[in-house]
Amino acid sequence: MSVFASLVERLADLLQPLFATTATAAAIVLFTMLVRLAVHPLSRAAARGQKARTRIAPQLAALRKKHAKNPERLKKAMLELHAKEKVSPFAGILPSLLQAPAFFLMYHLFSGDRMAGHTLFAAPLGDHWADALAHGGVFGPAGRVYLVLFALVTAVAVFTYRRTKRQLAAQPLDLGQPTPGAGAISKVMPLLSFATLITVAVVPLAAALYVVTSTTWSAVERAFLFREEKESTGGKGKPASRKKASGAVATRA
């Protein structure tokens, strides 16, 4: 933890000529981005695993339907399918878990007392939104800083909400099988993107900066990693090559 703190302090010193009193806040944002960049290979691996599971999901659903009354045969058939398609049942899960310790350490670094005495404009990095409300209200000097953060978080949450809704519509959690709670989870899952608003409101401002930066990075990163999936289907679920070929036939006709 002290190593991370020292790195943030050194970054703040380097950024001092550019950002003056907000150098520590800028260092938090930059440090978060550098860590997210360092773990990006794990994010790519997780995305590949998710795509692989999505690709074989219809076949898994068919196996569940075919062997619904024979759990042992179903288990064997699913293992055979994963081996045939060269997809691990845990593809994408392990890379996501490996990222967790870094995010956990950063959150605790920025939610501690190490950021006391530093500010982001008029808002102390060690204070909470409640402190800003108590000293000037919603539109006070510190309150306005939080309003900007809330606006950014809301924009990212709306983007993530819409994207999650589209993904769930394209691949329901129940995969056509009666799965208890799948419908409720599908309704609640997109709304989780708005939980960041609550986090920003209750944690110290330094931690809020980390959360906002990391959440924004995640939204942009996932849009980038999964853009290939949209491009390969022509954006409408039809393979781009097939669309191109059908267009060529129509032209010749």
Score class of each variant (00 low, 15 high):
Gly181Cys: 08
Ala61Ser: 11
Ala61Phe: 06
Gln59Ser: 05
Thr154Val: 15
Arg252Val: 10
Thr251His: 09
Val39Ser: 03
Ala201His: 00
His40Asn: 02
Arg242Trp: 09
His108Thr: 05
Trp129Val: 10
Leu109Asp: 03
Pro180Cys: 10
Val203Gly: 04
Gly137Gln: 01
Pro190His: 14
Gln171Arg: 11
Arg242Pro: 00
Arg144Val: 06
Gly112Lys: 14
Val148Glu: 03
Ala170Ile: 05
Leu197Arg: 13
Ile198Ala: 15
Ser193Pro: 11
Val212Asn: 11
Glu72Pro: 14
Leu152Arg: 00
Met1Leu: 12
Pro190Gly: 11
Gly49Thr: 04
Ser111Leu: 03
Thr54Gln: 14
Ala61Asn: 10
Ala142Met: 08
Leu60Tyr: 05
Ala219Val: 09
Lys230Phe: 05
Ser2Trp: 10
Ala151Pro: 06
Phe139Ala: 10
Glu231Pro: 07
Asp127His: 13
Gly183Arg: 02
Ala223Trp: 15
Gln167Gly: 15
His82Pro: 09
Ile198Glu: 14
Arg53Cys: 01
Phe110Glu: 00
Val39Gly: 00
Ser246Glu: 14
Phe226Trp: 12
Lys243Ile: 07
Ser246Ala: 08
Pro178Phe: 11
Ser241Gly: 08
Ala102Trp: 07
Val145Glu: 01
His82Met: 09
Arg64Tyr: 04
Val39Ile: 09
Arg48Ser: 13
Ala250Lys: 08
Thr119Asn: 07
Leu192Glu: 09
Leu120Ala: 11
Ala132Asn: 12
Ala83Leu: 03
Arg227Gln: 08
Ala45Val: 08
Met78Leu: 09
Ala20Leu: 08
Pro141Phe: 07
Lys243Cys: 03
Ala151Lys: 02
Gly237Thr: 12
Arg48Asn: 09
Ser43Cys: 09
Ala195Thr: 14
